[in-house]
């Protein structure tokens, strides 16, 4: 295992643990999700660059398009939560549930 592989794998696992353990803000969870997407982009790009295959260099850009979709849907949910509940704390989403 090279130090590069260790580095982006550790970055992905750190983002996953932050997403799993964050309980305060919705925006922090979305930022952890973006960090996971960043490490996946770096991983796919390094896969292209180290195997020396040019055909695979479209894969990180398609991943970036899909992560743009994910980020915009998450931010729309954030705006909807801020308009209905007044804040984006995840604690308030459990109040008065029916």
């Amino acid at each position: 295992m090279t130090p590069t592989h260790f580095s982006f794998t550790t970055a992905f696992i750190l983002g996953l643990m932050g997403l799993a353990f964050h309980r305060t803000h919705l925006l922090s969870a979305l930022l952890c999700l973006e960090g996971m997407m960043l490490s996946l982009y770096i991983a796919l790009s390094l896969w292209t660059l180290q195997l020396e295959t040019t055909c695979y260099s479209t894969a990180p850009m398609l991943l970036l398009a899909f992560s743009a979709c994910e980020a915009s849907a998450g931010l729309a949910l954030l705006v909807a939560t801020a308009r209905t509940h007044g804040t984006d704390h995840l604690k308030n989403l459990n109040l008065l549930q029916c």
Binding site: T10, A11, L14, G15, M17, G18, F21, H22, T24, S28, L31, C32, G35, S39
Partner: peptide, 8 residues
Amino acid sequence: MVAVASNP
């Protein structure tokens, strides 16, 4: 990534 994941 530690700075993102440590919940500030």
